[in-house]
Design a protein around this nucleic acid. Structure first.
Length: 824
DNA sequence: TACCTGCATGGAG
DNA sequence: GCTCCATGCAGGT
């Protein structure tokens, strides 16, 4: 009997093969040397629970199949971690102690370890990962970092790891990770004191440094996926990984247990119980729905739950974090030649725990006793790391380390932005997601965005745009929407590190990039596209400054002059943003325009100071024109008949705003009609009537008045000067004049949309108000003539919401750049 | 009609 | 092209 593993969670480069067999993490090895203890396997080690006892335990728990499944138990990792370690110093890492309690256990493990074919397989497996890029030296490989002995212990394979967890800087090493992200679950790391980590878990610096030693391929294997259940006995016996691609034993990161102290405390209370995180899962709408079926990740189910061979499955006793026991039916459905594992009857428990879709349920094993414990984390606290994983998974670009996610204070702007951008995209997809009745909405496992992310979404849209770097060698086509220029690419932009483009003294185009570590700015060729995380060490273009210790070329002053700039990709957007601020109410697209109108009278408009470059409304689900503009949108023009998202949204928003506007208006009309008839001209109002609005608008060029040009309170004038379309937006375009809109006018095409939407609304409005409520707002009779007396209030004043608008004259008018629309 | 059950479907990785 | 899995949905109760 001997120990096959020191019990620590180790990274691939942080353990050593022991002569006696098995492995030990570097830290423990060192520690053992220091302590004078043997760094190898003490024969006296720790086998506290016999296999038979295990079986009894399982049987007692109703895992009857387990007992008869022969070799299966070694797959039941969790139960094997319950070793009540006698060595005090080991307590802190008990959950990851791998103490085989029986000769059988050991035999299984050792046999497997010594099986040449298996080793070969391990090598192949590792090699495969190495080859396909899923494993990289210097990165941490979650599953593979488990030791050979742990291959049979999913808990280790899952629960391991992560040394870096409480050290954000560790995540630096992750930047290149594409698939194997994050070691968020490291119980031993996350939840031990630094001392413990350093001293006992070997968590500290040891694992932070890339191990110069080559990874030991033979140790990289996990049989997490080996056993499927009793039917997979052969696999279980021979430890052969599944032949399919998943045989690489990867449990999806999103299922890695990420327990917090609170979680543990919640589960274990004050007892001395040892909690072994198994896995976790974010509740989907289906999971949290009334059906009461919690879909279990297949790998997790097969790894941590008793094997089942019949679809009916087994009753499974689960204890919640409050100690209350529940019995679920653990079963599966045949599905596509595979299985779909579910826990049935979870509704009461879920309700009891008051969790919902988007929250995370955690499964762990409580030792001694091997109780299966179901905990939960609310979405607000659960998913930063989850999101991280998601981001990596979906982007294939590790934009940040997990530790960073765990520690928002360590987030770099780039990371945030990249993250945001990703999530924004996800949200975009979520919006278009056709699934209905989804309780999950944007919280969909793959698309959800949690609160923390929402916070992080509060970046300027320019920043976000700026981070969308064009793919190399791609040339953008510039599209102007709402006066804002957008660069469009055939392919979606990729996330990159924002840099500052400049021209050096030689006239050569360069760019400046800031190191993530030292924050020094480094000069780079202009055509270099950097990853979201970039450090001096990656500065292959300037070896002299490929280290953070190198002096920054730029002086503070130079940098100051440089910073306001931004890369060309963003400059145009910045320019638009500047235009926005310069134009006082310069609108943030039609979205803002519409909302200004929706605000209605009496509600303050954004002041110029408020019209910052911020676009706070950009958030998941935002349907504003900026957000919905597809990154790969084609063509600069949107025809009137265009039914793209942008156009449809514009139309829809206008219809909505008009309806709302109308409601407000109608409420006041009764009170003001008589007054308005006295103070305003029904059909025409002198142009020179000073608008009640003040300030900047008045100084703007006087809009070309068309139809309702009129009323002195005509907010058209306000908006006309506000809007970025040559200072005016006029939707009072006569249909016959419509063709006069410049085909090349970007605003024209958009204005057609506006007009279209507006016309629709106005027709409705006129119908509604034709009963005698036509007042000053009805400023023009539709040339085409409608029913008698049906005057089309075809001026929709989106500026009506301006605080200075005469509320008695809620004239709707949008002035566009329609060239010289005839006055009525 | 509502709910349950089991399988099918299709998006995503 | 495969697997996973969230969810739809048909059929049964």
């Amino acid at each position: 009997m001997r120990r096959v593993h020191c019990g620590c969670i180790v990274s691939v480069h942080a353990f050593t093969l022991l002569d006696a067999g098995g492995i030990e993490c570097v830290a423990c090895a060192r520690k053992n040397v220091v302590m004078g203890s043997s760094s190898s396997w003490s024969p006296s080690l720790i086998f506290h629970s016999s296999l038979s006892e295990r079986f009894k335990e399982y049987s007692a728990k109703g895992w009857t199949q387990l007992a008869g499944s022969g070799p299966v138990p070694w797959r039941q990792a969790p139960s094997l971690f319950n070793s009540p370690v006698t060595q005090p110093e080991l307590h802190s890492r008990v959950p990851y102690e791998v103490d085989l309690s029986t000769g059988i256990d050991r035999l299984n493990v050792c046999d497997r370890l010594s099986t040449p074919s298996l080793e070969k397989k391990k090598v192949e497996d590792f090699s495969e990962r190495l080859m396909n890029g899923t494993w990289k030296p210097g990165t941490r490989d979650i599953h593979e970092k488990g030791n050979a002995g742990s291959e049979n212990f999913p808990c280790i394979n899952h629960g391991i790891n992560c040394e870096e967890q409480h050290n954000p800087c560790l995540t630096k090493f992750q930047s290149s990770l594409k698939e194997e992200p994050n070691p968020q679950f490291g119980l031993a790391v996350s939840y031990t004191s630094p001392d413990e980590a350093n001293g006992q878990n070997g968590v500290s610096g040891t694992h932070l440094r890339p191990n110069p030693q080559p990874p030991l391929a033979k140790q990289f294997h996990s049989n997490l996926q080996n056993g499927t259940d009793s039917s997979g006995e052969t696999q279980i016996r021979n430890g052969r990984p599944r032949p399919d691609g998943r045989g690489k034993n990867n449990l999806f990161p999103r299922y890695w247990p990420r327990f917090t102290d609170q979680d543990l405390q919640q589960i274990t209370g004050d007892s001395n119980s040892v909690i072994t995180p198994l896995f976790e899962k974010m509740l989907s709408a289906s999971d949290a729905g009334r059906i009461g079926r919690l879909v279990l990740p297949k790998k997790c189910a097969e790894a941590h739950f008793p094997p089942i061979s019949q679809p009916e499955g087994l009753p499974l006793k689960v204890q919640d974090s409050k100690g209350k026991e529940w019995i679920f039916q653990f079963r599966f459905w045949p599905n596509n030649n595979s299985r779909m594992y579910v826990l049935e009857g979870v509704t009461p428990c879920i309700q009891n725990m008051q969790v919902q879709a988007g929250d995370v349920v955690t499964f762990s094993r409580l030792e001694p006793g091997g109780k299966l414990v179901m905990g939960f984390r609310k979405a607000s606290t659960a998913s930063a790391s989850d999101q991280d994983n998601e981001a990596k998974n979906s982007n294939g670009l590790s934009m940040h380390g997990d530790a960073e996610m765990a520690d928002p204070t360590s987030w770099s702007k780039v990371d945030k932005s990249g993250y945001i951008a990703k999530e924004a995209l996800g949200a975009k997809v979520a919006v278009s997601r056709k699934r209905k009745n989804s309780m999950l909405g944007s919280k969909s496992k793959r698309l959800r965005i949690d609160n923390e992310d929402l916070i992080e979404l509060k970046l300027t849209w320019e920043e976000a745009q700026g981070l969308l770097r064009p793919p190399a060698n791609h040339v953008a086509s510039v599209v102007v929407i709402e006066g804002f220029e957008f660069e469009e690419y055939e392919d979606a932009p990729i996330l990159g590190k924002p840099t500052i483009f400049a021209t050096d003294n030689m006239g050569e185009k360069i760019q400046w990039a800031q190191c993530e570590d030292c924050f020094k700015w480094r000069r780079l060729p202009s055509n270099v596209l950097l990853p979201s995380k970039w450090t001096c060490s990656s500065n292959s273009w300037d070896p002299e400054r490929s280290s953070c210790s190198a002096i920054q070329e730029l002086t503070a002053e130079q940098l100051e002059n440089l910073l306001p700039q931004c890369n060309p990709a963003a400059s145009k957007k910045m320019k638009a943003a500047k235009q926005e601020t310069e134009n006082v109410d310069a609108l943030e697209g039609l979205d803002t325009l519409a909302n200004l109108a929706i605000l209605g009278e009496g509600e303050s408009l954004p002041t110029s100071s408020q019209a910052t470059t911020k676009h706070p409304r950009h958030r998941p689900g935002c349907s504003c024109i900026v957000c919905i503009q597809p990154p790969s949108g084609k063509g600069p023009k949107h025809k009137q008949t265009c039914t793209c998202n942008v156009c449809e949204t514009v139309k829809r928003r206008f219809r909505t705003l008009m309806m709302r506007r109308e409601k407000k208006q109608s409420q006041k009309e009764a009170e003001t009609t008589s007054k308005k008839q006295q103070t305003s001209l029904p059909d025409k109002v002198p142009d020179d009537d000073p608008p009640p609005c003040t300030n900047a608008e008045n100084s703007s060029p006087k809009p070309i008045k068309i139809a309702s040009e009129g009323s002195e309170d005509d907010p058209n004038r306000v908006k006309s000067s506000i809007l970025p379309f040559k200072g005016q937006i006029d939707l009072n375009i006569q249909p016959e004049r419509e063709e006069e809109l410049s085909p090349g006018s970007d605003s024209g095409s958009m204005m057609r949309l506006l007009q279209d939407a507006t016309d629709k609304h106005l027709r409705q409005q006129s119908t509604l108000t034709s009963g005698g409520n036509s007042n000053s707002e009805v400023s023009q009779t539709q040339p085409g003539g409608g029913p008698e007396g049906e005057k089309i209030s075809n001026s929709v004043n989106l500026g009506a919401s301006h605080q200075d608008i005469d509320r008695d004259h809620p004239v709707f008018s949008i002035k566009t750049s329609a060239p010289t629309s005839a006055t009525g």
